[in-house]
């Protein structure tokens, strides 16, 4: 083949601009993450298990950040250093090297093993159901709003059954349902583990409370559960995290974290299902 056929000699030779570009991604990437930490990071934490999630996030951020820097530092260097330097230079014939390959198989392997174990332990902790003294609430979603059902004085939510042809499928024949309170306000008690049952009236929604690091789908026809312990009183945003129709973007709710006393006073003032069924007000 003649030299004229050789397009290699016609392409760019210097890797300097590319190398600098790669390094600049590394630098800008790191700076932007550090800058964002103070402005646009996770919302201020308001739940117990969230602290663990945040900590693990930081650990992985450091590990992956180090890898990102390593790869880009080397890539930029190789690109600048090992450009073609004309006829005299020759590439180094280096098809494989078992030690090197094993090293970068085993080291990431160990790192992943460690992260799996840590992650699985945390995941299992978060899903351990709280004890019988937990605060119980059923959070409800429908296109495109939120509400809640509280168990009332007996502490037990009336059962749900898909065959009950009523919104949210509460079985009114279950005596435990009589004192349940249904309300548009979602309230939970500070520092008390919450067992949240999730129920949708129609399509799938998602219960997402960024400040709690809590997220769980609300599956049609399925009672999903999620657990958290709020650590600060106040009002927190709920977003519907899963696309559920045209109003999805505006499906915002609020969850109020109050003290036990505040909650007790409030809930006594609300109508029970039995009240609602017999508005003239039989005994509770």
């Amino acid at each position: 083949m003649s030299q004229a056929d050789n397009q290699l000699e016609r392409v760019q030779r210097s890797g300097l601009s590319l190398g600098l570009l790669i390094w600049s991604f590394m630098i800008v990437g790191v700076i932007s993450i550090l800058y964002a930490r103070d402005r646009w990071w996770f919302l201020p934490l308001a739940s117990q298990h969230g602290a663990e999630i945040d900590r693990m996030f930081d650990i992985i951020l450091v590990l992956t950040g180090a890898m990102f820097i390593l790869v880009h530092a080397l890539l930029g260097y190789f690109v600048i250093q090992y450009r073609s330097r004309g006829a005299a230079s020759k590439a180094h014939y280096f098809p494989h090297n078992v030690v090197l390959e094993l090293t970068y198989t085993i080291l990431p392997g160990l790192a992943m093993l460690g992260l799996s174990v840590a992650g699985i332990l945390l995941w299992s902790n978060i899903h351990r159901p709280p004890g019988p003294d937990a605060f119980v609430v059923e959070v409800r979603a429908e296109q495109f709003g939120w509400s809640a059902r509280y168990p009332g004085a007996d502490g037990v939510l009336g059962r749900t059954d898909n065959d009950v042809a009523e919104p949210y499928n509460v079985d009114r024949k279950d005596p435990a349902s009589r004192d349940d309170v249904v309300n548009s306000e979602i309230r939970v008690v500070v520092n008390r583990p919450v067992r949240t049952l999730l129920r949708t009236r129609d399509v799938i929604h998602e219960f997402y409370v960024p400040a709690f690091r809590t997220k769980r789908y609300m599956l049609s026809g399925v009672s999903n559960e999620t657990y958290f312990t709020p650590t600060r009183t106040g009002t927190y945003d709920i977003a519907c995290g899963f696309v559920c129709g045209v109003g999805h973007y505006a499906m915002r709710g609020q969850i109020q974290v109050v003290t036990q006393a505040e909650f007790d006073t409030w809930v006594k003032q609300q109508k029970t299902l039995a009240d609602a069924a017999a508005p003239r007000g039989a005994a509770r």
Partner: peptide
């Protein structure tokens, strides 16, 4: 890429 003869 290491010790190659890179054409861009």
């Amino acid at each position: 890429l290491w010790r190659g003869k890179i054409y861009f």
